[in-house]
Amino acid sequence: MDIVRLSENTVIILFEQTINHDNFTIINRITHTIKNTLSDVVIDMIPSYASIHITFNLVKISGLEFKAMLKKAIAESEVRAIEKTKEKIIEIPVYYGSEVALDLSYIAQKANLTEPEVIDIHASKIYDVYAIGFAPGFAYLGNVDDAIACPRKQTPRDKVAKGSLGIADQQTAIYPASSPGGWQIIGRTPLQLIDYSSDALTQFSTGDKVKFNPISKPDFLAMGGVL
């Protein structure tokens, strides 16, 4: 682990530069500790797969002092490691029908599986929220089973519909709003994933666990889904 100053008022804590579950656990723990102990000098935090990016208040504390405080907080978080926070599994309904699952047949063909098998593999796993970024409420979930992992599209789509569920390599994610995007689309949720008027703003936080529940077309429409 390494703490590097990036600019006058930002630092990044870097972990082993891979996407793995050990990183996820450590980053989660350290993020919580920093939030609980350094909130008076921390302005913003972006936890990701293998790093935590922090903006600190330069008017209150120098970069050198902040780095020292971070080191101390990280050491303390190791002591607290035993206290396990309660795990919450967030369930997301998804319609995997062909009119919204634009790339499902491609993935099935590539994986030498049937479409229902791909859906079953995707929906039977519990995923971790590794990071949130790219767009408001866009949560990077992992890891997708090797059997259905699939690279991004060669040419991104100009418009991916709001609520679309995609796969990119071993990650899976939902587009909270319609946007250009290159992920392989396999379904769509009727849920609103970003809501500026709600206190929580998003359904997900980094560190949460997520499961996808397949729903029928009538259920999708009844829940407010748009085809």
């Binding site: 990036l6 530069q17 797969y49 990016h53």
Partner: peptide
């Protein structure tokens, strides 16, 4: 590329 990480202004 690098493993996606938070980005500072001016990067």
């Amino acid at each position: 590329g690098i493993v996606s990480q938070g980005i500072s202004v001016g990067s």
